[in-house]
Structure formats: structure tokens, C-alpha cells
Design a protein around this nucleic acid. Structure first.
Lengths: 341, 341
DNA sequence: ACGAAAAAGGAAACCGGTGTCAAAACGATT
DNA sequence: AATCGTTTTGACACCGGTTTCCTTTTTCGT
């Protein structure tokens, strides 16, 4: 019997069940070459004494930890946190745990930092959040290091087993359709920074929808931001100066849309009476700002769960492509355009 | 020599340095009974070949993982994320990693869940964020399990070595002083939920400052919220109905303060012209809301770093009490009270 | 210079699992 | 019943450190 006070080990199970520890190990690892009778006998003992394999020992023997890593360059606090919750949904009641690692994508050492991190911790796999999920070198690094990985993205960045995708582009298109239906014709775009795949996808969606409706998008009706609040303010100011007749504004994310509110208010423009504003991400700020913002939300938590499952249990469903639908969250920042004066 | 491709092991170091692995182990563990010459010789080799002890092996032998756990019941996404960054600041370039574990403080199984989590993962230590940091049973559990812990709190919850503290109370007092200096006399309070130590501290600070100034605080000038946005809306409505002559409002956190903005706007009350609003936490919403909110910010990241250091390197400074000063972040939601009549 | 105590080093066992490979058990044939 | 080819199972080394226990060397007082 194991000394009371310390958890039962594989040896305890083996002794009580009257088999070798290797056999117990086989039961734990679901080896197919076990006689059913043996398996059941061992499983009974495991259940009885409440044995749980020690992840530290397995980590050493397998040269691989039971840790999932979350690598991110803080796109947005709420997003990251929702993602963490989703991963936890997937690994709750398993031996896995989630380790987080904020990184700085602007640092020239990012890849080296991550390499030594992976080398040291021997993670089972990592989850890559945008924008660093778009970094192909990083994915390559994971492959080299024998570390599983799943990328979250708004485009087909990788093979299905390494990807959980959202359909930003389609979603933006339908959002523009919605604005056009309401009567808007002059719609402005605040796009995200160059180099972000999501920004590109959202812009493409915008442009193709406008084109489909036969609407003109002069250069002066688009402005670029950095996905941060301040850049939204600046972009809006620039836009409204160049194109004062714009009646609706689509911002590539909520923070910039909130910046647009700010700029509009400073100019005495009423939202949504004189200007409709639409964001993207459904972050908390969209709900808290006044008037509450209409935006597009994607099911981050479910996506995170799916991503984690691809790593942890690739058998179940891991190879199938996962594209998650976003949905329009209608609040009060969009109205029909004002009557022409 | 170690086979190229795999990291150097303790045996490599021992062979190259011409000592036994035990000696190397002693160097790594800073054993005091080593001759300086030996230590330096070994350290030189370690540096040369870039040896890093394998955390998995150490975890097995020491029965203790090199993982810090962050237990939280999401007080606020930005807070949690800042905290994570702070912990990372402390453990960057060490063998430690940070694992996160959101918990549900309303679940009756919370303690059991955490117990089995600790048992399984054998964390080196955990960091407890408010509000669960206030749970004494949880701290007791950590002690029982031999797991280090540090609590973040707004009061003296525990011994110095287990505590990183903020001075909410003092800070609220000085905030009220500030309002009174501006001329406010009728100040309302939206307090946080019962059972939160921070809520209690902030209320105490408010009341004692008001008392000090000889100002009356009728029951109708305080309302309770849940720390969530919506509760801020409701509390403000209740408050303004009962005490329409209030000229300033202090909310126990920014989310509720944002709710107060919302309620004020719905009632056509101008902020800060007719009503000054003050929040607490300096969360992003405070900066993004219109007009930008004056609030109190505490240095979460530094506090997190200090907390992590208490666990990782208790020698350095771990036993000394750590109380971090908050500071007033002045923005545009506070103005002198409107002239009477 | 001598003996005792302190410091340094090493061999082997151990932490709790997994991999390899050979032995044992089994079933089907002859 | 003996033989052969498969399953099943177990003995033993190993993952990369730490620990125990003991021997050898230093250091120091006298």
C-alpha cells in the first residue's frame, strides 16, 4: 500500500492488481494490445484507489510536458481572456494546464525568445492568437521543435489541423449589405494596420461589398489605423475632413470605432443621427460606450475550445476544418442616413 | 559531449568540468558548502555550453513543478492581463512559467477543484487575485498542500510574505478630499458588493473622509452595485432619484462609473457640468468613455511582479511588506459643482 | 606537526513514469 | 501432443535531475 499522505503511484496499482507497472502504463495510454480482462481489472483498481498518473513523471519520460501554451501579443484584453476561458473549457478535468506567454512581436528577438521558451518548457502544443498567428516563421519554428500548434486566423493560414478560422471577410460583406439596405451610400472605412491578415480580410470584404452594390470608394473615404483607440480618433478626423458627406463608418475593430465616437463627438456630430458607426470584435467597450455600439462578434470562447481540442485530442475532430461564423450584434450606433439637406 | 541536437544535460557539465553530477547539482541549487573555486569552475562550464537544468526532471525529483499559478475569478479582463504581464516580468529568463486557472467563486466545488488542480500540477506557488484572494479557506488549502501563495489585497489579509497590498482606503480618502476642495458637498457613493474586501475598504475610505470634512452621508446617498456595468446604471438611477442634488459621484470601480455615465446621459445630466463622476481602477474603459474619466489607478503590473518575486525568490525581499500606492488619474469627468439655483 | 572537525566529492538509489525486447501464454494446425 | 505464429505481458534500462550515505580532502586549533 502507498504510504498514506502521498498519492498512489503506478507501483501501487500494479501491486494491487497483480500486474507489472508496464501493464498499468499500457492501460493508461490506451494501448490496443491488452486483453480486455486485464484492462478491466486494472481499471477497477485505478478507480478504487483513485490513482492519477503523475504528469511530472510522464513529462520527463515522454520529453513532453502536459502544458498548452498561449502565445499572444495582446490584441485586446477581453479577447485574450475569453480565449483562455475557452481553452480551459477544453482541458478542464484533464491533466493539461494552460501556460500563458505574452510576447512582443516588434522585438527582433521574438522568435529566439519563443524558441528557448519552447525548448525549456517542452510544451505539448501552443495556441497562436492574432496577430502573431500570422507569422509563418513562428509556425515553422513550432514544427521544427516538435511542438504542436494551432493558429487562430481570419484566413486559411495553414492546414486544417493547425487552424481555427473565422470568416471576417464574409461577415464584413454582410455588414455593409446591412448599411446599404438602410440607405447608406457614402460609407467610410477605417482599416487596420498593414501586415495584419484580419485587417486585409476586413478591407477586402468592405471593398468587394461596395463594389457589388456599385458604390464608389474614393481613397479619401478610407483611412488607416493601428487598431488602437487613438488611431481611430485620428483616422476619423482625417476622413470627416476629406469626406464630410459620409453617413456611415465601418471601423476594423471596436477600439478604433470607439475612437471614431470620440472624434465625432468633438466635432459635434451625432451618433447615430448624423453618422452611423460600426465596429468589429464585440469587445466590452462596444457595450459600454454611448450609444451602445453595433458591432460584429465572433465566438472566441468556442474557437479557443476547438483549437485546444485540436491539440489535445486530434483524433476526435482535429483534422476537420473549423470555420466559425461571426454574428452581427445590433445595438444603437447605426441608423438610416440623415435626409439630405 | 552531448549529442548535437539535444540540450546539454547535467552529465555533460559534470564530465567537462571534471566533477560529479552531484557537485553540479550543488552549484545549481546554491548549496553553501561548496568551495568557491569549484563553484566558479562549474559555473564557467555551465555558461560555456549553455546548460539549463531540465525543469521536468527537477519537477519529478523535487516533487514540485516550476510553475506559478494564477488563480482568479475574472475581476476585470485588463486587470488580469496586466497582472499576467507583471508576473512574466518577474519570471522572464527563469525556468518558471505561468499557468492560469480561472475559477468560479460561486461554485460550491471551487475549493475541491483547486485542491485537485494543485495536487495534480504540484505548482510551485499560486497568486491569488481579488476577490478570491480574500478567501481564507483557500489560503489554508495552499498551506496544507505545501504550495506557496501570495494574495493580492486591499487589506492586511495575511502575513507579509503572503501579501501584496494596495492602499485603496487611503486613496479613496484623498480622492474625496480632492472633490471637497473643488467645492463638492453632496457626494454620492456607489459601493461594491458585500463580501468584497476592496469594496469595504473603499466604502470606509469614503465615509471616513466625509466624516472628517463634517459632511453628511445619508443612506440615500449611497447605493450598492455588483462591480458590473449594469449595476452602475441601476445604482445611479436610484441615487439620483433619491438625492437629485448630488453634485459628485464616487463609484467603487470604473465599470460601475461607466454605468453612471450611462444613467446620467439617459437622464439628460451633463458630465461633468452637472455631475462629476469618479471611478476606481483606471481600466481602459475610463480612458475611452466620453468624457474621459478621472479615476484611481494602482500599479498592477508592479504589484504582480512583486508578488511573483515573493514566491520565486523569497530571499531577495520576500518577507518585507509590500504596499503599493495608487494614484489619481486626472481626466475630464470631474469639475467644480454647478452654482446653486 | 597532529588529530579533529568541517568541507567537498562520488556511487548508487530514487522520483514515477515510458521504451525495448524477450519471454510467456494462447490458439490453431498438424 | 508437439509445433508454429500471434497476441499479451513483464524485466530492465532510461528520462535528467536530487538525495542519502559514505569516503576523501582541507582547514584549523594547539
Amino acid at each position: 500500500m502507498s504510504k498514506s499522505g502521498s498519492a498512489p503511484t503506478i507501483n501501487d496499482v500494479a501491486r494491487i492488481a497483480g500486474v507489472s507497472k508496464k501493464t498499468v502504463s499500457r492501460v493508461i495510454n490506451r494501448s490496443p494490445l491488452l486483453k480486455d480482462a486485464t484492462r478491466q481489472k486494472v481499471e477497477k483498481v485505478i478507480a478504487e484507489i483513485g490513482y492519477i498518473p503523475n504528469p511530472q513523471a510522464r513529462a520527463l519520460a515522454l520529453r513532453r510536458n502536459f502544458l498548452l501554451g498561449l502565445l499572444h501579443d495582446n490584441p485586446n484584453a477581453q479577447t485574450v481572456l475569453n480565449f483562455q476561458e475557452g481553452v480551459l473549457d477544453a482541458i478542464r478535468d484533464t491533466e493539461f494546464a494552460l501556460v500563458v506567454r505574452p510576447v512582443d512581436r516588434h522585438s527582433p528577438d521574438m522568435l529566439e525568445d519563443i524558441r528557448s521558451f519552447l525548448e525549456l518548457q517542452r510544451l505539448y502544443g501552443v495556441l497562436l492568437l492574432p496577430p502573431i498567428s500570422e507569422n509563418d516563421e513562428l509556425a515553422q519554428l513550432c514544427r521544427e521543435m516538435g511542438c504542436g500548434y494551432v493558429r487562430m486566423g481570419s484566413a486559411a493560414l495553414d492546414e486544417a489541423e493547425h487552424l481555427v478560422q473565422s470568416n471576417d471577410r464574409e461577415m464584413v460583406e454582410s455588414v455593409i449589405d446591412y448599411l446599404v439596405e438602410l440607405g447608406h451610400r457614402r460609407i467610410g472605412l477605417i482599416e487596420g494596420p498593414t501586415g495584419f491578415r484580419s485587417a486585409a480580410e476586413r478591407r477586402e470584404g468592405f471593398l468587394s461589398a461596395m463594389k457589388r452594390h456599385g458604390l464608389d470608394v474614393p481613397d479619401s473615404a478610407t483611412a488607416q489605423g493601428t487598431y488602437r483607440f487613438n488611431s481611430g480618433v485620428e483616422a476619423t478626423n482625417k476622413l470627416l475632413k476629406a469626406e464630410p458627406r459620409i453617413t456611415a463608418l465601418f471601423a476594423s475593430n471596436d477600439e478604433m470605432a470607439a475612437g471614431a465616437y470620440h472624434a465625432a463627438r468633438e466635432r459635434g456630430i451625432e451618433v447615430p443621427g448624423q453618422l452611423s458607426i460600426l465596429g468589429f470584435d464585440n469587445s466590452p467597450i462596444a457595450a459600454h460606450i454611448w450609444p451602445p455600439m453595433t458591432t460584429v462578434g465572433w465566438p472566441i470562447r468556442e474557437m479557443a475550445k476547438a483549437a485546444a481540442l485540436k491539440l489535445v485530442d486530434p483524433g476526435s475532430d482535429g483534422a476537420s476544418p473549423s470555420c466559425f461564423p461571426a454574428r452581427l450584434v445590433t445595438r444603437d450606433s447605426v441608423a438610416p442616413p440623415p435626409k439630405e439637406g
